[in-house]
Structure formats: C-alpha cells, structure tokens
C-alpha cells in the first residue's frame, strides 16, 4: 500500500483544511449554474421556436458538450480558447484560470439546461397557452405567467441532478491547478502521503454537500409542485378524520374514499 500508515486522526485533521476551500468549490458551482442557465435559455429558444439556422447551431452545441468528457472540454477551452482569441488579437494570458474553468462548466451545464428547459416547456400542454391567449394575454405574458413557472417546476428534479453533478465535476478543476477541494486534497497528500485519510475526508465533504443540496431541492420541488398533489392544503378537500382513516380493504386495493376514477381520467387525458 502506497503512502504512510493509516491514521484516522488525519481524517479529522484534514477535514477542516479541505473545508476551507469549500467556498471556492461552491463559487465554481454557483457561477457555472448561473451562467449555464443563461446559455441554456439562449440555446433552448431557437429550438423551441424552430429558428432555421440557429436551431442547427444549438443542436451541434448541445451534442458536443454532452458527447465529450468534461476533462477534455476543460483542456480544450483552457489551451484552445487563447489560441483562437489570439487570431483576433485578444490577449487572455492574464485571465485567471478560474475564468476558464467557470466558462467550461457553464457551457457544459448550459447544454444540459437547454435540454431541460426544452423538455419542461413542451411538457406544459398547449391548451393552457391557448387559454392564456383567449383571456387576452400576449405571447410573452403567456410564457412568463403560465408556461415558465410550470416548466421550471417540472424541470426541477433534472436541475437538482445537474447541480449535484456539477458539484462533483468541479473536482476535475484541480487538473488545471485550481485550489478547490480536490486540489487542496492533492496538496495535502503530497505533503503527508496519507492518501486514504485525505480521500475519506474529501468523500465525506462532497457527500454532505450533495446531501444538503438534495434536501433543499426536495423541499423546493414539493413547494413548486403543490398544485399537482391531489391531497389538498388548507381550504380544499376537507376530509374528516374518521372518514379518511384507511380501512384494511382500501389499503389492500389501493383506493381511498371519495376519489372517483373520473378525476384521474379527465385530469390526465389532455396531457
């Protein structure tokens, strides 16, 4: 086994040291997702509205960023972009590495986000848009007031996955020398040779953050999708305790009282 003899104390010792770089990791995630949302929107629009040439361009963009490893994208942008910009006599040698890293991650996230937005928007049925028009709304009002909130709610689980995936992907930024959590871990290892302890501490860190993010998104999702729950909140569907207590029979058959089949059928059939 390489490195020094296992010593559990290093796990506790290195934990706070790596934690100190957490803010950088979260900065990369935050900025990338934020910019990614911007890219995603820009790229999704031509496909949603079937703009002739741009539609093709965004297709190529999406398949490139989804079809190549993020590590390669990091290298391509870090080494390639300055070369390209040199042709236009733009000098980026003084630009911090972090900028390239954030750009790569946001372009990467943007590809997924555009797909997410597209799927979300198409999932909102056309009838609601027509209803919005029929009460006199403009196309923009219908999109912002009716389609977008629902599309976002629908997309949230996918978005949560993406944020967590981006968090984990930031561990590759150290390959360009960025001192985020994984980068910090590497230096600690170089100093002490305690591989396993360092990685245990690192794994715990990533896991805890992912776990917290997961919970936050779960709460958010429940709030945004409260309209799809059949069990009502205050003021509706009041059910009295003794009435709603499940009997063995409807537990077995999976039915509850007072909910006709009609609801499920006519509620969903238009989707």
């Amino acid at each position: 086994m390489p490195g020094a003899k296992f010593d559990i104390h290093y796990v506790f010792d290195y934990f706070p040291k790596q934690l100190s770089t957490l803010s950088l990791t979260l900065t990369i995630v935050g900025l990338s997702i934020l910019l990614g949302l911007g890219f995603g929107f820009l790229v999704a629009l031509p496909r949603l509205y079937k703009v002739p040439v741009l539609q093709r361009v965004s297709q190529v963009y999406v398949s490139f960023f989804r079809g190549t490893p993020i590590l390669i994208q990091l290298f391509l942008i870090y080494y390639g972009l300055p070369e390209v910009l040199k042709l236009f006599s733009v000098d980026v040698t003084r630009t911090p590495v972090l900028a390239f890293v954030v750009l790569t991650y946001s372009l990467h996230a943007g590809a997924y986000i555009s797909e997410m937005i597209r799927a979300g928007v198409t999932a909102v049925d056309r009838g609601q848009v027509e209803a919005a028009y029929s009460v006199g709304m403009s196309g923009f009002q219908a999109f912002v007031r009716i389609v977008l909130p629902q599309a976002l709610a629908i997309s949230l689980p996918v978005f949560a996955n993406l944020v967590i995936a981006t968090l984990k992907d930031t561990s590759l930024a150290f390959s360009l020398g960025v001192m985020e959590m994984t980068g910090k871990a590497q230096t600690l290892i170089t100093l002490s040779q305690h591989f396993v302890e360092t990685y245990i501490a690192l794994a715990i860190l990533y896991f805890v953050i992912s776990f917290i993010l997961e919970k936050i998104f779960y709460v958010l999702e429940r709030r945004l999708l409260k309209h799809e729950r059949q069990e009502a909140g205050a003021g509706t569907g009041r059910r009295f305790g003794w009435r709603s207590a499940p009997t063995l029979r409807n537990l077995l058959t999976g039915t509850t009282r007072g909910r006709g089949g009609a609801r499920a059928r006519d509620g969903r059939s238009e989707a």
Partner: peptide, 9 residues
C-alpha cells in the same frame, strides 16, 4: 382555493 388537480371534471 382548490387546484385543478383537486377538482372533478
């Protein structure tokens, strides 16, 4: 205060 999903057709 009911949402459409909580109402009959």
């Amino acid at each position: 205060d009911a949402y459409p999903s909580q109402l009959s057709g």
